[in-house]
Amino acid sequence: MSSRLLVFLIPVIVIAIFWVMAKMERGVAHDPTHKGFFERNGTVLGVTFIVLVAFWTLFLVTLPYLYMVVESFHPKLPPMQRGGPDDVLTLEQYKSFFVTPTDGTWNTNHMSAFVFSLIASVLVTAFNFAFSYPLAYYMAQAGTAQKVRLIMLGLIVPYWVNEILRAFSLRLLLASKGLINQALMGIGITSEPIDFLSIDVGLYVGLSYAYLLVMVFPLYNAIESLDKNQIEAARDLGAPWWKIHRDVVIPYAKPGIASGCTMVFMLAAGSLAAPQFLGGPSTLWFTSIVYDFFFQAFNWPRGAAYAFILLAACIAFVMMMLRLFRVSLGETIK
């Protein structure tokens, strides 16, 4: 048990280091007009602030994750043996992602699900952007106030419908005997129903739709603050519409685009419900595997390790893309 509890010392040590640094700083540059935190807020209020913030950041955010990190470096053991001699630190769980523990062969099943999930998330992000950008541009620059309000309403109201209902109604729409297939067959485009669900159309549509707002609003925010005169100036200088977007609007909205794309990608890669309800029978989404380790196999260490692999890969990918498009992380969270 001790090795698991040790990790909880980390935040305490970090806080202690900062406290010492603050003390030293005050010794070096003493500002006589400066009032301490408790002087400014009073003891009762000051203690309340600190307790609330500490509870939030330590107890609700930091500790659960830290615990998961520790868990991922341990073997799966029955409760009796936890903390016993077999409870050692190990990379076994991370290794199991690459090599199947039982027979020592490459774990292609999980790795391909992982790669598929990431690629599909990229596609969802791209599709989402392609749809959201014109919409956000229209709302931010072109539309009249009244129409923009209508569109906003049209975007937001469907989100009141819960996720399961939304996913299954999409299923109904896309099923072999669903509305779309019947319409396609009715007008004679196809004679056989197209199995949209098994070719993952449902998955892409469902995921894109689920995170539409997450893309539209950062884009809308970014484009909305663009001075209309900039667009007119480019037009006056002879630019056709697509060059205006390429040279003026998109560079300006880049932080918003980066922010929207990052969030959609992260959320899509980590989503659980939509892939389960809308994915084809042979589609294996990586988060489903993680879910199964936690709740079917009760293998928390391996589930945690898989989740961290996904997290690390997503962060690495996003950082790489931000780098590629020369956007700083700070800009995306403005």
């Binding site: 001075d227 100036a233 060059k243 003026v248």
Partner: peptide, 26 residues
């Protein structure tokens, strides 16, 4: 015609040269 806007509407993300030659670039 070419228009000079009241707030000038220079492109903030471009350099002076890029601004000046934008019309030629397009």
């Amino acid at each position: 015609t070419a228009l000079i806007f009241q707030n000038l509407a220079l492109f903030p993300l471009m350099t002076v040269s890029e601004n000046i030659t934008y019309g030629l670039r397009v």
